[in-house]
Simulated assay, not measured.
Amino acid sequence: MITTPIAFVGAGPGAPDLLTIRAAEHLKKADVLIWTDSLVNPQITDLAKKSCEKIRTSSLTLENILNLLIKKAQEGKKVVRLHDGDPCLYGAISEQISGLIHAKIDFEVIPGISAYQATAANLKRELTIPGIVQTIILSRASGRTGVPKKECLERLASHRASLCLYLSARHVEEAQSVLLEHYPEETPVAISYRVSWPDQWIALVPLREMAKTSIQKKLIRTTLYLISPALEETTMRSKLYSPEHDHLFRQKQ
């Protein structure tokens, strides 16, 4: 039996023009589109051809989705499994991949732009400023599914890195309390709701107002918190373009 490889495609943060070219090409060629309708902008699915069968997954279980992926691929269909953001980040593709490997069905993964990247771009900020912060941590607050003890927010916050918290709006008060034990209360926090969607809302507030602002806006999902000293305006510069710094392509001036 010959099957066409299934493509796990990252839809990016929401705006159709933030798709990668490779992602868009897969969407245009899809015979079957199995998509995360609760999180993906419906406009992105419009890229698929009219004859494409579109299946929403918000009401399906893993078993339902896996059976669909296998069945459609065995029928010789070009199947795209469309995830929000980047499928490798909180995309729950691991268990789907395991099922496909067991069924001996080939697949590929197409990355997508994540919400933290779109948020930083929207704010026109770099998250790795020399002498201030050189590390980005992507994580979430411990909720219903928990996090490993070694990755608890207390430990992550102690680094004072650029910390990006996904899936944490329902636990924002607890998260703020922990963060204030490690970051100064004036540390800038970008609160990003549905970034790049038509109704996006982004605010830059001090850490001490992170929870209050979230509660006032009634944010409970599709929200990213970006906590970072890099969000402050600075005159710090890297050595990369410094006249005193030489490297393979340039001598000291």
Rank of each mutant, 00 (worst) to 15 (best):
P243C: 15
Y225L: 12
E185K: 12
N64V: 05
I191K: 07
H247W: 15
P16V: 10
T145H: 09
L165V: 09
T3A: 05
C52A: 08
S192G: 03
P206W: 05
D17G: 11
R208Q: 02
Q251C: 12
F249N: 07
L165H: 13
A7D: 07
H159V: 00
K78D: 02
I132L: 02
S51N: 04
E174L: 10
N64I: 07
T135N: 14
C164R: 03
R208T: 02
D246V: 01
V133P: 05
T222C: 08
I110M: 11
E126G: 13
T135D: 14
L89F: 03
C164M: 06
L180R: 04
K29A: 14
Q200P: 00
L179P: 04
T235Q: 15
L180F: 06
A30P: 01
L179H: 03
A118V: 05
N122P: 01
R81F: 06
A161T: 01
A211V: 05
L47N: 07
D31E: 14
K212N: 11
A157C: 08
Y166C: 12
L89W: 00
E174S: 15
R56F: 10
E185V: 08
Y225D: 05
W201Y: 14
D199S: 13
V79D: 05
E173Y: 06
D86M: 00
R160P: 02
F107S: 12
I136A: 05
D199I: 02
L204R: 12
C152M: 13
L66F: 14
I105K: 04
K72E: 06
W197V: 05
S214T: 14
D86R: 00
P16C: 12
E173I: 04
M236K: 14
K104W: 10
R194C: 13
Y193T: 06
L156S: 04
I129M: 04
C152S: 15
K72F: 09
I97A: 09
C164V: 09
T187H: 00
A24V: 11
S214A: 13
A161P: 01
R144C: 13
P5D: 15
D199Q: 13
E95M: 07
Q43W: 12
V133K: 12
T57D: 02
K77W: 14
W35T: 09
L33C: 08
I55E: 10
E126Q: 15
